[in-house]
Design a protein around this nucleic acid. Structure first.
Lengths: 176, 176
DNA sequence: AAGTTTGTAACTATAATGGTTACAAAACGG
DNA sequence: CCGTTTTGTAACCATTATAGTTACAAACTT
């Protein structure tokens, strides 16, 4: 299996941005929600930016935000942005060329891998970031109000702050 | 991606056994075809044996062979025998409980993971070891006869020996 | 009993990812 | 123009899964 949670973190990050609206999120804020280091977030953010899924900007009013509407980004886009190699790998070292099985097994397994990946992609293609956010909203709302009671207005998380703040940012280049 | 070729090797091993018929293969012979170390093969063979896909035996006439007809073992059986964790992983460390996204993202992603895994399993369930062997036979037969001409009786691979039998050619001793 | 092969432990090597620190470059406010 | 903030990125160590290797006891055949 892939010992790799990058896909999960990437979906988490994008969902956070969809949740909190237009305002750019800082890697520090995202890292707090994901419970990891800001640099880890920035590394994933970089790949998402290269795939055109997010837009980032430096500076005091900087941060990252979605490049498109949450309903337009699918989990397949995220999956491909991270450049996974596939569900399984082929032989690490090439099999024997002198064996009738060895000489062709890679081709056959390559075909199987394509079939499997295709099936995975069909599933991921039908789920958008908007779907993910909608699926977590019911419980999320409860958690949000609970946290509201606890911390009052000094809530540190951008997702919660965003609800209160929705004013002109004047940012020119960050616009989609 | 999974940097992991165990599935590929396992399918290779089972295909080799299907190709060469009833006679048990030694881990040494299999390792030659896969181009790796016999212990690596034995480790995978152990998992396949625990899943009931192969039968192994010690001793001078020992080795491993398929437990069932090649048409009865699916790639899903192989996939499950190796106990993969899934196509992707969830968060390494749990996300923030204080964030409306973090508190529920794992549940949502868990559902997605189930959907994806289910799609993978449906594909693998419809491919048997017999299918794999059939898919590689056309080129495999050509490779076999080519190797026959080159090496005559000194062919080391069990798979080729099986091919020789089909050609009515009494085969020599297996050597390394 | 002698020889062969599996089963398995123990160790090293490799590769991908995650985590951390540090700092230059970019953007913005005054 | 200057100082602050945040991203971008390099450098390094830690962790984990797998692969590769050596060695040896246990099981099996003749």
């Amino acid at each position: 299996m892939s010992t790799n949670s990058r896909f999960a973190v990437a979906v988490h990050v994008l969902s956070l941005m969809a949740w909190s609206g237009e305002e750019p999120l800082k890697s520090e804020q995202v890292a707090e929600s994901v419970n990891t280091n800001p640099v880890v977030i920035r590394r994933i953010l970089k790949e998402l930016a290269e795939a055109g899924l997010v837009v980032s900007q430096t500076g005091s009013l900087g941060g990252s935000r979605l490049a498109h509407d949450p309903g337009e980004t699918t989990l397949l886009d995220v999956y491909q942005a991270l450049e996974y190699g596939g569900v399984f790998s082929l032989h690490r070292t090439p099999p024997s060329r002198d064996c009738p099985v060895g000489v062709n097994i890679e081709t056959v397994l390559g075909d199987v891998l394509l079939e499997v990946d295709s099936a995975v992609e069909k599933v991921l293609q039908n789920i958008t970031i908007h779907d993910v956010v909608r699926r977590l909203k019911p419980c999320g709302a409860a958690a949000a109000s609970k946290t509201m009671e606890k911390h009052g207005k000094q809530i540190a998380l951008p997702a919660l702050r965003a609800g209160a703040k929705h004013r002109g940012n004047g940012s020119s280049e960050l616009r989609k």
